[in-house]
């Protein structure tokens, strides 16, 4: 059991670091896709399509097993953070982009009429409103991210999933171990699900 808890800690660490990277990537890519320069949009599009198109686990394997051929050797943890972050960043960039576009044009125009600079309009008018729209879908991606951390086991990171498998190999108490693993993941992810639902309800009830 303590062994399993150690795995939980790794899973949480991995989730947090990957989520931070994903958030940053999503913002960069989301804004880049709104750029007026076609080349910036093009490059971002390629990044997004590659990470959305080529299956998360394949990406993990590629970074872990292929990159060393190019002299880049990353630990399983680093690989997990990097791949999960880039992968979910690609998915979530669409959330960022569409939330910003969802703010009515009149808001920007009101900002211009008050002689605000473009960056001020973005920072104080558009983003605060767009962030609220983003929260529920970003939260859903976070849940998916927690679940996806399990895959890092397959490149032998000692996370919750790995620890479960290890104990199983030693003790052969398969039923208990795997049930416990499932329950722990559930306990990690489900509170988040409930929080997002509450948020969604409040948002759609018009408390902005």
């Amino acid at each position: 059991m303590p062994f399993l808890l150690k795995g939980v800690v790794v899973t949480i660490e991995l989730t947090i670091m990957a989520a931070v990277l994903a958030f940053i990537m999503a913002f960069i890519a989301g804004f880049a896709r709104l750029s007026k320069f076609a080349i910036v949009r093009g490059i971002t599009q390629v990044y997004v399509e590659i990470f959305r198109g080529t299956s998360l686990l394949v990406q993990l394997f590629w970074v872990y097993f292929v990159l060393p051929f190019f002299g880049i050797e990353l630990s399983a943890m680093m690989t997990g953070v990097l791949v999960l972050g880039l992968n979910y960043g690609a998915y979530a960039s669409e959330v960022i982009r569409s939330s910003i576009l969802a703010i009515p044009k009149g808001q920007t125009e009101a900002g211009i009429a008050l002689n605000m600079s473009p960056s001020l309009i973005m920072k104080r008018i558009i983003l605060p409103q767009a962030l609220l729209i983003m929260l529920p879908p970003l939260g859903n991606y976070l849940i998916e991210l927690i679940k996806s951390t399990a895959l890092v086991l397959l490149i032998t990171l000692h996370d919750l999933m790995f620890c479960g498998t290890m104990i199983n190999n030693v003790t052969m108490r398969t039923t208990e171990i795997y049930s416990l693993v499932l329950i722990i993941y559930f306990l990690l992810a489900y509170p988040l699900t409930l929080a997002i639902r509450r948020l969604e309800k409040r948002l759609s009830a018009g408390r902005l």
Partner: peptide
């Protein structure tokens, strides 16, 4: 929905 596919497959 709240647990990983991988854990379910192992189960």
């Amino acid at each position: 929905r709240s647990t990983p596919l991988l854990a379910q497959l192992f189960f």
